[in-house]
Design a protein around this nucleic acid. Sequence first.
DNA 1: TCTGGGGTCCTAGGACCC
DNA 2: TCTGGGGTCCTAGGACCC
Length: 429
Amino acid sequence: MLHVDLDAFFASVEILDDPSLAGKPVCVGGAGARGVIASASYEARRYGVHSAMPSVIALRMCPDLIILPGRFERYEVYSRRFHDIINDLTPNYEPLGLDEAFCDLRSLRRLSVAPLEAAARLRGRIGDELGLLSGVGLGRNKLFAKLASKRSKPRVVNGGLVEGPGVVWVSRDLESAWLEELPVRALWGVGPATAAKLEKLGLRYVRDLALVDESTLAHHVGPAMAASLSAYAKGEDFREVVAQREVKSVGHDQTFARSLEGVDAVLEAMKVHAAVVARALRGQSRVARTFTVIVRFDDRTSVSRSQTLAFGLDDEVGIAAIAGALVQSMELHNLVRLLALHASSFLERSRNAMQLTFAIDTVTPDTRNRAVEVGRDRQVGHEALRDAVDEIRRRFGRTSVGTASELREDGVTIVTQRGSHAFGPEQTP
DNA sequence: TCTGGGGTCCTAGGACCC
DNA sequence: TCTGGGGTCCTAGGACCC
């Protein structure tokens, strides 16, 4: 098994596109009070900055830190080229996010390609063709390949950068020595919560896990987690490479710079969410039957409400109606810092039995379950309008046309006979 | 006024079907 | 005059990954 991981991916792409950033502490992430770092250049890491860190903390550690907002279309371009290179090595690979992948190298064995040779060539091509650095791990299974790629990376030691080996192979006879010293937190699936549970049981290192039987473990962390932990502790990992995964949900989350107060403000924001989710669904030619609304309050507690329909939806009017009804079924006792809308239970568009539209004005908390109304004429009108809007955006860009509620998201240019005026996000023309 | 946004998977309870 | 067990689907919440 091979695991390949691009170094500081988002930050590196920003530096490639703007060489004046080279050698400076650069991050991609949210710069506001509630922003976090998504990717940090190694120069930034020298100050202790790392991904998932709140931006205000990062700025405290490194006052000169440059935080860029992130251009995900750009990262996707690089990601596709990255995947193309991997695909030349083997089509049996599994992407993990935009910048990582597992490759099953068993087919290469038949071609007598040595793993170390394949790894070196892969890194070489990524460097030559993309201008990006990467780390590669090799091992008997996903567990060891991933642990190895982590160790292949550059490290910050006493504020100085130490180059990594680039390629690391955990050979069979080294496996147990590796596992011995690892803290449980290093294992896939063990985050802060599980690590704390294990700590309470006196299980701090992977070697400790091997001493506990699975049923005892299951008592504390559940049967699925117990099974994988017991396997990992023995160096076993039966996860296969899954080459093409089907997307199972799409959603949109937004944490507001200033929390929302009151149901009207939440409903207004939800219209933007519905438009974003609807656009994502149509972009994938899918319709969704289940819609979930999640609200996080200022005290960081969350509540969710979901509803599954008998048919699928991909239009913002219908989705906004369902999502709005779900919002109204919640008690908003506190300021809302995050609003999320997720769509799941996909159907292929062509297999959707009926495409209904909603009389949005009939949706109240009482009528949540009757929110659906058939409106044949309105449906035809909405679909024609929607398809026209999609087409205009395809030809002239995403911000070329939109509903009033979407203007807050992207900004817009209003053109009149007297000239044009650009409005930014959060401005109401 | 320290913690994002894109996702996946797991768990537990309840309703329902045979 | 009482009620099992297998299975699926839905809902709410939580943990984790990049």
